[in-house]
Design a protein around this nucleic acid. Structure first.
Length: 298
DNA sequence: TACGGTCAAGGTAGT
DNA sequence: ACTACCTTGACCGTA
């Protein structure tokens, strides 16, 4: 089993210990420059606290919430967020580098660049451009913009082709983009094909892979994704456990020790980045570290 | 201050 | 055709 202390660890969007969130947002009905800037200030303040806390507590990855600039990609957004926030975002980026923190973003279910509906594609590209622009202003050299493949629509083949065609000209997005397998529609082999078509890396999600493995064991899955990270920083993986009281694929509050061990066992090298997707956020990682520690001590 | 209904957006699957 | 579900929870009016 690989040494978990050589792995870099992180968690998404918020910190429970600090009660800090980078996802403060507002309602579309109250979208004014004042209200937005209040929320942006709150998100920036909390992100600053999280970056400091992470560096003092052994964490090296963090996912910034999509609402960091609420409604940034919405047509009704009321000001030039890039111009207004450029400097403050740059300062946070500098802090992240000083504290050794790798940043990422992960647009959700509504972002579907392979949709047959051109309006959905355009809105999706707008959100992806916002995310890439934010990572750019943060000067996140090894930043990651995580995305799923979305729907099947008319056919898998056509959907994959549209995904590639619609994103191929988006060099600013592609600079950060990484594609992730999901638990129902798109397995790892399919994600690898699309990623190869775009020249972007692949994030392996272990829980999704467990539910949608397409006959590939974890060890060979990891061997497939690691080379896709050439030139894009350390390979990045997602780790989570099933919530036993919910439907298949639902993230648990914490990570089961056996799931953590299964991943560490399957890694060819400990020099990877693991983002833990658990509802208890950083506390789930702390508990997993504790479990690993007490397992390895005599 | 706590709570429940609601919130920009898309898509799948079960009925 | 309709509904539940996904999910980064958070907002906001009401009690």
């Amino acid at each position: 089993m690989q040494d978990w202390r050589a792995v870099r660890w992180g968690y998404p969007c918020e910190n429970r210990t600090l009660k800090a969130s980078t996802n403060h947002t507002l309602r579309l009905a109250s979208l004014t420059p004042q209200r937005v800037q209040e929320r942006v200030a709150q998100n920036m303040h909390d992100l600053t606290r999280i970056l400091e806390w992470n560096s003092q507590n052994g964490f090296e990855l963090f996912r910034v919430g999509q609402h960091f600039i609420p409604f940034a990609s919405h047509p009704n957004f009321p000001y030039d967020w890039c111009a207004v926030h450029r400097e403050a975002i740059g300062a946070i980026g500098q802090l992240a580098r000083q504290r050794g923190q790798r940043l990422s973003m992960h647009p959700g279910q509504y972002i579907n660049p392979s949709s047959p509906n051109p309006q959905v594609v355009e809105r999706s590209l707008a959100e992806l451009r916002y995310s890439a622009q934010l990572l750019h202003l943060l000067q996140a050299e090894d930043g990651v913009l995580v995305l799923h493949l979305g729907g099947i629509y008319d056919s898998r083949e056509k959907s994959m082709r549209r995904f590639i065609q619609n994103l191929r000209p988006e060099t600013e997005i592609l600079r950060f983009l990484a594609l992730e397998n999901d638990e129902r529609l798109w397995n790892l082999s399919e994600v690898l094909r699309v990623a190869e078509g775009l020249g972007v890396p692949v994030i392996l999600d272990t829980l999704h892979h467990q539910l949608n493995p397409n006959g590939m064991d974890l060890r060979s899955a990891i061997q497939e994704v690691i080379p896709t990270w050439q030139g894009r920083g350390r390979p990045k993986l997602h780790l989570s456990s099933q919530d036993s009281s919910k439907r298949a694929g639902a993230h648990g509050d914490y990570v089961l020790l056996e799931d953590g061990i299964a991943l560490l066992d399957a890694l060819p090298s400990p020099e990877v980045d693991i983002m833990v997707e658990a509802k208890a956020k950083e506390q789930a990682v702390l508990r997993l570290w504790n479990d690993l520690r007490s397992l390895l001590l005599p």
